[in-house]
Amino acid sequence: MVEPLLSTDRLVKHFGGLLATDDVSIDVRPGEIHALIGPNGAGKTTLVGQLTGLLAPDSGTIRFAGRDITRLPTHARVRLGLGRSFQITSVLREFSALDNVALAVQAHQGHSFRFLADVRRDRALRTAAQGGLDAVGLGARAAMPAAALSHGEQRQLEIAMALAGEPKLLLLDEPTAGMGVEESQRMVETLRGLKRSCGMLLIEHDMDAVFALADRITVLVYGRVLFCGTPDEIRRHPEVRQAYLGEDGA
């Protein structure tokens, strides 16, 4: 068996009396899309917070690319290749689309303690950033301020920024949230195209997107892993159907 890229071992997180993460052990293999689903309040966001380093788990460990990253700060995890997109769109609104990606490229190129050279004349940086925009179909929007892009385009921009870091694994927190059908489909296409280059942990409510993309699906309920299996297994699982997919199934 291939060693997983990301794995958690018996992760626990309390908020006061609330057990938000209850003994969670999951893993993502290289090149795999692993979807995490569950009703609202199931603890998906809390789990992502611990994976990215915004929250510290009470106990348990997180391993990524062969290292224990449980206590590593966010920026160090990103450096190791753990990229993410946000549930709520998070771009630099007053920066142009190109500048957004250029910053992401810059982050990946080592430290930015360079005080005098003009970034606007840094051709390598601009070319790489333009390439990133082209990859998500935003090439023509390069000069526009991020705030002027449509919601769907901003989500695409986020993906481009996450990819600029050449991540080994992408944490995607509801990438199709708030999108129309057409935009969702475009996002699914974009993500499918990226599958070869990196693994993904996909948190998503849109079941069409989940079943279209995921190799494996983990169902989280009340902070616990209810079930983990392939999309087919999930479809057949009676408890999952009842707890999450509803009576009719998917």
């Binding site: 946000f86 998070s90 982050a107 920024m161």
Partner: peptide, 10 residues
Amino acid sequence: ANELRMTALG
């Protein structure tokens, strides 16, 4: 502009 974003970029 967006501290959280910058941290997430590394």
